[in-house]
Design a protein around this nucleic acid. Structure first.
Length: 290
DNA sequence: TCAGGTAGTAGGGTGTATGT
DNA sequence: ACATACACCCTACTACCTGA
């Protein structure tokens, strides 16, 4: 529907003309393509549409090669609720089947303002990978159902890991078993993560394709699409183009420059990169005011 | 060829903002 | 008050290079 056309040609010429200023594109996409009411939800982000945004570090090896620095944490494991969920209806799957991943280069002792974003990849987990993750998921769930959540380990699985997650002072949590009784041994909190081994395949894809507004939709077939993909594949492809175009102007800009560009507050929060990336995606809300 | 450097993997842990 | 979402930080162990 949008393929081979501009948004204006395909959707709402008059309205688009009525709005001037940077950042309208995303706003229009949200409003006319996805039906968001931008005004009623200024924080509307793409997770509402089934797109998870992730910002993750790379490290530069001695030979200058860029490698994955860490696993990518997806979402907390709910020892009670997750037990009865099939992979296809799990929080992890719904959340991470479709991700916009921004890679930046981590450097020790370099002010956080000077770190460089280098790749952006829109990634839909291919079916072959989902198969493996499904097995991983089931392995994890099986342990929980057996009352062995405390024995969970990242080494158990291939792509989808159950990594430790918690805060100072956290105590292990109790959970109920399928028969309603309480597990004998409480377990530390854990989260589902994409292991570095899997992240590497995404990185390789980014390198191979240039990573500057690149996307993998090879797995975009019928049957398991998250709710983002309600219409045709054409629509999705167009959406990707639009979304990725939003990032194009910002490649090779440092965090500091981005903060200036978006008049975003500089914070010491560890989620600061996410906050900036979110600014890019929801730029319309701040730019529209100017 | 073997000791030291590197990288991959696993494991444990933390800070800040925000939602319920 | 507490849990979750954001990543982010640090260490140990192991295998694999690599150059004296």
């Amino acid at each position: 529907m949008l393929l081979g056309k501009t948004l204006e040609e395909a959707i709402a010429p008059n309205v688009i003309e009525a709005r001037k200023g940077k950042g309208r594109l995303g706003q229009l996409v949200e409003e006319y393509f996805f039906g968001y009411d931008v005004n009623s939800n200024p924080d509307a982000d793409f997770s509402d549409a089934g797109l998870e945004l992730k910002v993750t570090p790379l490290k530069e090896l001695k030979n200058k090669v860029l490698a994955i620095k860490e696993r990518l944490v997806c979402t907390m494991i709910d020892y009670d609720a997750d037990q009865s969920k099939a992979f296809e209806e799990s929080h992890v799957y719904l959340k991470c089947a479709y991700m916009l991943i921004l890679f930046y280069i981590h450097e020790a002792d370099v002010p956080v303002q000077q770190l460089l974003f280098i790749y952006a990849v829109l990634w839909q987990i291919p079916e072959k990978d989902l198969l493996i993750m499904k097995q991983d998921y089931e392995k994890i769930i099986a342990k929980i159902r057996a009352g062995k959540a405390h024995e969970l380990s990242e080494g158990d699985t291939t792509y989808l890991g159950a990594c430790r997650k918690g805060q100072k002072g956290d105590t292990d949590v109790y959970y109920n078993l399928p028969d309603g009784t309480r597990a004998a041994v409480p377990a530390p909190k854990r989260a589902f993560s994409l292991k570095t081994q899997y992240m590497r395949t995404i990185l390789e894809f980014a390198k191979k394709t240039g990573g500057q507004g690149t996307y993998n939709t090879s797995a975009l077939v019928h049957g398991y699409s998250p709710h983002l993909i309600e219409e045709s594949e054409l629509r999705v492809n167009s959406f990707e183009d639009i979304l990725l175009n939003r990032f194009n102007p910002y490649y090779r800009m440092s965090y500091e420059e981005l903060v200036k560009e978006f008049h975003a507050p500089t914070t010491g929060a560890k989620s600061k990169y996410f906050l900036v990336a979110n600014e890019i995606l929801t730029e319309s809300h701040t730019r529209a005011m100017m």
